[in-house]
Design a protein around this nucleic acid. Sequence first.
DNA 1: GATGAATGAGGTTTCATTCAT
DNA 2: GATGAATGAAACCTCATTCAT
Lengths: 222, 222, 222, 222
Amino acid sequence: MVKTSRRSNKEQSILDAAERVFHRHGFTNAKMEWVGEEAGMSKASVYFYFESKENLYMAIVYRALSLLNDLMYAAIQQNKPENGLNSVVALMNTYFDFSQKYPLYTEAMLDYTAVIRSTSAGNNEEKLSDALKESVYFMRLKDIHNIPVSIVVQEIKRGMEDGSIHDNRKPEMLYLSAWAMVLGYLKLTNLAGRKHSLHTVQLDDWKEYLIALIKYTLVHPV
Amino acid sequence: MVKTSRRSNKEQSILDAAERVFHRHGFTNAKMEWVGEEAGMSKASVYFYFESKENLYMAIVYRALSLLNDLMYAAIQQNKPENGLNSVVALMNTYFDFSQKYPLYTEAMLDYTAVIRSTSAGNNEEKLSDALKESVYFMRLKDIHNIPVSIVVQEIKRGMEDGSIHDNRKPEMLYLSAWAMVLGYLKLTNLAGRKHSLHTVQLDDWKEYLIALIKYTLVHPV
Amino acid sequence: MVKTSRRSNKEQSILDAAERVFHRHGFTNAKMEWVGEEAGMSKASVYFYFESKENLYMAIVYRALSLLNDLMYAAIQQNKPENGLNSVVALMNTYFDFSQKYPLYTEAMLDYTAVIRSTSAGNNEEKLSDALKESVYFMRLKDIHNIPVSIVVQEIKRGMEDGSIHDNRKPEMLYLSAWAMVLGYLKLTNLAGRKHSLHTVQLDDWKEYLIALIKYTLVHPV
Amino acid sequence: MVKTSRRSNKEQSILDAAERVFHRHGFTNAKMEWVGEEAGMSKASVYFYFESKENLYMAIVYRALSLLNDLMYAAIQQNKPENGLNSVVALMNTYFDFSQKYPLYTEAMLDYTAVIRSTSAGNNEEKLSDALKESVYFMRLKDIHNIPVSIVVQEIKRGMEDGSIHDNRKPEMLYLSAWAMVLGYLKLTNLAGRKHSLHTVQLDDWKEYLIALIKYTLVHPV
DNA sequence: GATGAATGAGGTTTCATTCAT
DNA sequence: GATGAATGAAACCTCATTCAT
């Protein structure tokens, strides 16, 4: 039972507010004032807790990635007795669920790079904005950046060792392919907006099919 | 052999310039002035040809989609003698190539929806901006919007009829899945930036694998 | 039967168009392009005939004032046999009719000064814009500027001499007072827009009353 | 003795500044930056208090009309013991004084309608600009719009009842006629600029004559 | 003469960010 | 800690005017 400080409390409620606002309007269009309003405080107060708009965004991405990591750790924990294949499938399911439950998180994580570029100062497209470089969250992010990858890859390797996954391909390639499917699904799903179908296909049916496909891919070498 | 008018010529060179600028800085960060500079003319001249920034962007998306459509039409033309499966695979290859050759086009097409939303006025996220609604290109886009889908779906159906593709699933679902893979590949590839590998996987190898995977998916029911 | 040259013809049709446009949108908001469209030609052609927007406006004012002068000359001509009083009343009637038939002319003549000021360059409110000073019409205007005044004043004097108008006041003062009534009527009428009444008063009734009032004023010293 | 808040204070000083700037350059030509400078702050600060240029203008008109209303209420208060005629004359005097003391206010009030029209978007001259429709002051204005009219009309009626004003005409018509004289006087006076005479007539003399004329008009039926 | 094309010089408005209290 | 107020630095777009053909 960690005693959350008052400061931490405020930070969290700002993050909550920011998530909603960013999700509603997108990073670029969202105004810091709206974040303040949504959090029930003034714009200036938001700045007291987060030094910049980018920093705030990074904090959200960090939060998102942290949550995903937690979920993934939990998933492999639960699937330790199972073989690698099932564990990987479970991980993918986790990812699907995560991104469906927290669409904004997924978006944030995917836009991560885009935002970085979009903020970069005029002429030098390579250089990140100073605000970003100084962002604590940005630095922290780099540390946990690759955790999802390594978790999944590790489980794929376990699957290869216990024979539940074919070893025809590099585990990283299998991972990337599975991830690509999830990502593509999200992008397309996003286009669908609030609708439940896309080109006459029920989204739920499609999702199930994709998971089956991923599993099939892991078992049958191509 | 249509004789392109001077006006049309200028429009094209502005579009060329805009593509570069938007690609370098992203839609939001790009300044119309830069587009002018890149095209060797004044900002106001750009406005002479394209009434608004959004309109210009839509013209690019339109151009991108038109090109893709052309390529796809050419692909099915060339594969008429082949069975449906090969035609579909050819189409997917076409898409891969297209998006690798014109990364900015792909980005533009993917951002299409995002831009629409991001531009929507403050409060009512549903209503499109006036500038967008009045864009000729935006209206034209809606007409050619779904051509890629219908082309591929049509060829999948042909494959199902000639027996080269299994008919275990709705053709639309097969299409969406293939598309999702391409999209996911692009997104991840985009993250890689200029690098040629991702998590130790060579991008070219991965691409080949994905195409094989798509083919496999079309042949073997899951 | 003056043979109007081709040049003159075009100038006239531009003026016709400009009158409509300026009347519809007001001087500041009217765009030269609209004038061209309304006249069925390009914006550049308008500039071929009128060197600047202000010049064009001055040409309209000149036209308006010329017409008014003609009407007034005709009126005094017709009322030569009458006494001064009737002549003045006729002149006022002329003015009323004129401004009701050509509301835009009246407006133009009244805004004359306002426009001059509104165009004057930023800091020095006194200095007229160069474009204006070079306007042929502006110079011509100064010549016929005071004709209405002098005509009316002259007739008032005649009335004083023949005893039909009291000579209790300076003729100029009587003139100004009559003119003020007409002007006020116009301003208020303008506010009414398309409506035919103002504060429950029928505009026509009011006009008649005002004319009677003017006449009364000329006869009865106050 | 209401304690004016700091915000209100600033608003007032911006209005003061804006009045001067608008008066010097006219609404269209005035730049918001100048308003800021005149008020000793940045352009953006002006926008912090007034959401748009039009809104600012409407605030000035509102202020002007409010002041006029106050003065008129005071005038009738003071003339309660007097008969209607004297009260009306006092009201007219009030208006004359007001417009001479605050020429910019008068101009603003007179331009009120003009501005509305001049701001209306390009094609549809009927529709007001959004900025205007959303202006708080514009809405408030509509409420106090007609107060001067009703005050004067009410006093004219009183005069008719106590026999000091003839009842040959509708009170509204008498009011309109008096108002027209004042308006015409102002317009012509405005043309005179800083000069003290117009066509050899001393402005002060003329004013006195006009007031006498108005009084005469109220007493003697025409 | 006519006009499509080009542009210089602003103009209003927006917003992330910072101060002063 | 909190916040009303202030602002610098753009960004988009407009339009009278001029050129080049």
